[in-house]
Computed example of a mutant assay.
Amino acid sequence: MRGLICHLADAHKGREMTSTAAHLAWLESNGTYTSACGRNISVYRFNHDALDVVVMSDWAKHFRNHYCNDQEIRYLKNPTKTNSEYLISEKFPSELIAPGPSIRAGDFAEILIADYLQYVKNYVVPRTRYDRKIIANESSKGSDVIAFKKAPNAISDNDELLIFEVKAKASENTKVNILQNAIDDSVKDEIRIAESLNAMRQRLVDRKDFKSVDLVERFQREPDYPCKRSYGAAAVYTTSSLHENIVSTSDASRHPSASRLELLVVSGQELMSLVHELYRRAADEA
């Protein structure tokens, strides 16, 4: 745990969202499982503390800004609504109306894995997936998490494009192998990555973030300038639904890039309660 916190401190240096990654200090390595095809599955425990007001508040702001930048909310919302009312009714998936709760769990899991890749693994992870959704109670289309590593001021064949498929099971006491679902759906990323990069680029142009546009463009030039392409499959479970004997039946042998596929599992106690609390705080503190 101490090593991970030090790693986080190093990863935060010079980054814009330093305080928002404090919740990753709750992420603790919990060894590995072995898949049916003999691959290591990295396992993490998320020891969250919803009573830690400072960390939860920073995290809620970071989480909220995936859906609606705090600087823009005044101009986007219906003027008859408060910030909180706008976020709850038009931006956030519903807490009660299906499929809202499962969309909440899925978005939470994707953002958590994106944070892990950016702040622990030191990838660049543009956040463009949620803020222009037309229907709040639907999942965004395309690859779940796209991350980059690139040599500074140069194009190198060591530059890396990483595409992660993420699944969530936040309900209690279920027995399902969502890691296998993530592996199976990761196969589709080979087809949809061009569309996903194009969507990311368009959103970055809307933001006038041309430095990030240039980064995306480098990986759109992959046919002319080869790079490393890696894949990941992640499963985020509430603890009572994580069963090693079930997850270990996962088989990635049929994945077309199995040798470059990372397998990851994260679990946390009463995860759905945490998800709803995070959305509540994100709205109330807007």
Score class of each variant (00 low, 15 high):
139 S>C: 02
149 K>D: 04
164 F>Y: 12
249 T>R: 09
111 I>A: 07
227 C>W: 00
247 V>H: 05
174 T>L: 11
183 I>S: 09
286 A>G: 15
216 V>H: 05
173 N>M: 02
29 S>I: 02
256 P>G: 09
286 A>R: 07
258 A>Q: 12
115 D>R: 12
41 I>A: 14
90 E>M: 01
263 L>K: 11
153 N>K: 12
83 N>Y: 02
94 S>G: 06
44 Y>I: 08
201 R>H: 06
272 M>S: 14
202 Q>L: 12
77 K>T: 08
157 D>H: 08
41 I>H: 10
36 A>D: 08
277 E>C: 10
199 A>E: 12
163 I>T: 11
80 T>M: 03
246 I>H: 04
124 V>F: 04
262 E>W: 01
11 A>H: 07
18 T>Q: 10
125 V>K: 05
132 R>W: 13
20 T>Q: 05
72 E>Q: 14
250 S>T: 06
82 T>D: 04
171 S>D: 15
244 E>R: 13
218 R>Y: 00
22 A>R: 07
120 V>Y: 03
255 H>N: 12
239 T>N: 08
179 L>K: 05
205 V>M: 09
238 T>W: 00
34 T>E: 10
151 A>R: 08
267 S>K: 10
108 F>V: 12
184 D>Y: 03
261 L>N: 10
243 H>P: 01
77 K>S: 12
4 L>F: 00
281 R>C: 11
238 T>S: 11
136 A>E: 13
106 G>R: 07
206 D>M: 10
141 K>M: 04
81 K>V: 01
183 I>E: 07
199 A>I: 10
94 S>I: 07
181 N>A: 15
212 S>L: 12
143 S>T: 15
50 A>M: 07
176 V>I: 14
34 T>L: 12
147 A>F: 02
164 F>E: 13
263 L>W: 01
169 K>N: 13
111 I>M: 15
201 R>V: 14
264 L>K: 12
28 E>K: 08
40 N>F: 01
161 L>H: 09
157 D>F: 14
267 S>Q: 11
263 L>N: 11
113 I>W: 05
255 H>S: 08
228 K>T: 13
76 L>H: 00
218 R>W: 04
188 K>V: 08
210 F>V: 03
263 L>E: 12
218 R>K: 09
241 S>P: 02
278 L>H: 07
183 I>N: 08
31 G>L: 01
75 Y>K: 07
169 K>Q: 09
203 R>Q: 13
212 S>M: 12
61 K>T: 15
122 N>R: 10
175 K>G: 15
258 A>H: 08
112 L>N: 08
82 T>H: 09
279 Y>I: 14
226 P>R: 01
164 F>D: 13
